[in-house]
């Protein structure tokens, strides 16, 4: 494993170049370029501000609530769906050039990471400009949630990109799976509601609420929401202390690291056949 990391470091230039290439390809020949990436959250903010303030009266400051979870989710889902294609899309390179194959899924994570950073910047600017501000006491959860998000995303991206070379079902399954996964994660609706309704429903040894929490994306998203969104009345976010949430994120980080170790190994052992399977 140490050898793989060292090898990857030697070839880091290809990784940067691929990320740069993807970003350029994405935005060249468009007049606004990377502004498109920023426009996405801006429009979201505007639309959901309108919807929540003017039409509905549900979650207060809904745009902030939505985007703090949605941006994290986007990093995960975009990495997975483009990661699944990463080896196939670069078949020509895989067949003709040597470089550590791990670079391909890592580059797709890198591209989504750049978008995540740009879009988060928009959100942060909005927080400041709108006068919503930060709850400094909770902001320290942000980097922990971010590490959990990145580790988990990388681990699962390795898995889908390796499997999709051999089983092209994965890309179709993934589209469906991400849809279900999205709605199983408290991004557009309140996590508190789920806790309220499922806590007493028993599923054998655990409650339905505990089963709901087995989804790592849920813990990660709640972490981001807690860090950025101020739940004034305590009826939006699930009732966890910050300490509990940090502990849960810690578990996700440890489990994701273990998963990353396994999926990386799987990816590496399968990558020996990539040039033939494509």
């Amino acid at each position: 494993m140490v050898g793989r990391v060292r090898e990857l470091w030697e070839f880091r230039e290809i990784l940067w170049n691929l990320v740069r290439k993807e970003l350029k390809v994405k935005y060249t020949a468009s007049v606004l370029g990377a502004v498109w990436s920023l426009l996405n959250p801006v429009v979201f903010l505007a639309v959901f501000w309108f919807v929540s303030e003017v039409l509905l009266d549900g979650i207060p400051n809904y745009p902030v609530y939505l985007l703090s979870g949605l941006l994290a989710w986007n990093l995960l889902s975009v990495s997975l769906s483009s990661g699944a294609q990463s080896v196939i899309a670069n078949a020509n390179l895989v067949k003709k050039v040597y470089f550590p194959r791990e670079i391909l899924p890592l580059a797709t994570v890198g591209v989504s990471l750049v978008d995540f950073v740009l879009q988060s910047a928009v959100l942060l600017v909005f927080l400041v400009v709108s006068g919503y501000g930060f709850t400094l006491a909770a902001l320290w959860l942000y980097p922990i949630a971010f590490i959990a998000l990145l580790t988990f995303t990388t681990a699962v991206t390795f898995l889908v990109s390796a499997l999709n070379v051999r089983y092209r079902d994965v890309q179709h399954l993934l589209g469906l799976g991400l849809l279900v996964w999205f709605w199983l994660t408290p991004i557009v609706y309140q996590g508190f509601l789920v806790q309220d309704r499922l806590a007493d429903v028993s599923l054998g040894p655990i409650s339905a609420w505990q089963a709901y929490l087995l989804n790592p994306a849920t813990t990660i998203v709640i972490g981001f929401q807690r860090a950025l969104y101020d739940d004034v009345n305590g009826d939006i976010l699930p009732a966890f202390t910050m300490g509990e949430l940090a502990g849960m994120l810690g578990v996700v980080i440890v489990a994701s690291s273990l998963l990353l170790y396994l999926t990386w190994r799987l990816y590496f052992s399968m990558s020996g056949d990539f040039a033939e399977e494509l």
Binding site: I14, N17, K21, K24, V25, A29, N92, K96, V97, Y98
Partner: peptide
């Protein structure tokens, strides 16, 4: 080691000549 199995490995049509030179060179 550099393997010349194909001219212009990794060339991308949307990128400029300059960008492709750097990309291709890094693969070599």
């Amino acid at each position: 080691l550099a393997a010349l199995l194909e001219l212009g490995a990794g060339f991308h049509p949307e990128l400029t000549g300059r960008e492709n030179v750097y990309l291709n060179a890094s693969f070599l």
